[in-house]
Amino acid sequence: MTTLNSVKRDAPLARPAPHKMSWVWLGVTPFFLFAFIFLLYPSSTIAIRSFQNTTTHVFTFDNFVHLLQNPNLVNAYWISIKISLITSLGGGIFGFLLAYSAIRGGLPPFMRTSLMTFCGVASNFAGIPLAFAFIALLSPSGVLTGWLRSVGYNPYFHGFQLYTFWGLSMVYMYFQFPLMVLVISPAIDGLRREWLEAAENLGASSFQYWRYVAFPILLPSILGTMILLFGNSFGAFATAQALTGGSINLVTIMIGAQLRGDVLGDAGLGYALALGMVLVMAVAITGYTLLQRKSERWLR
């Protein structure tokens, strides 16, 4: 039909004929309407109200000023960033080593498929069930604690605490490293065997291969995925809430407390907090997208 063919020949962003435009536009209306009402409008509410005074609705930067002046809240950002950095680095490195071992490490092929399956499940197994799984593992009545105590070593006497920053980091790693494995695998696949053989033919040592061939190729992927991990950890809420009951100072916990109506009496601060989070995430996702594009060069 002529209508279809003419659209096919036009460049994707070319201006279509006006009468076609209105008809075509109707088809995507439900989606845009849905997205506007339930996603864009609430999000823009946050953005706008964070710049407004709660009672008078006058535009002001006061909310952000108050946020930066509140040591508790600034601390919350710092702790959130800290835990995200640590788990993205730790999860990233561990995940990369795991993925590389499974794909190029000379292990039997079924280990790779098993690893992908497990990682798919593990990266979804987050939130409250995960928090409790670690409580069952390492709380003072936990199974592992019991085993260790029966061989004479009580981790709690050596300063171990589950419901703290480091305990939470350990729990976060559980869904971070599988995510790394899943996302970095295509990149490792793209590391062609011919390059390794060529390097060996030229007399390169293992270290030189990694330093001059493999890492430069993989680095954008690795960094990009680590940034994705960073965003993943920064936005986590249910896991932290279930494990610590809200006693660790994270930005997500602060926003959750705002929703409950306690901690901060000032609604404007809550909006400012939320917008701050979105900004951090936006920077993270942008970084990831840019690095992902850069790494795609090598995957072709």
Binding site: I135, S139, S141, L162, G245, S247
Partner: peptide
């Protein structure tokens, strides 16, 4: 001191013994 509210579940699990 652990800043978690003690409930029967947390006592049993050992978070607030």
């Amino acid at each position: 001191f652990v800043p978690v509210i003690a409930k029967v579940g947390t006592i049993a699990q050992g978070a607030t013994p």
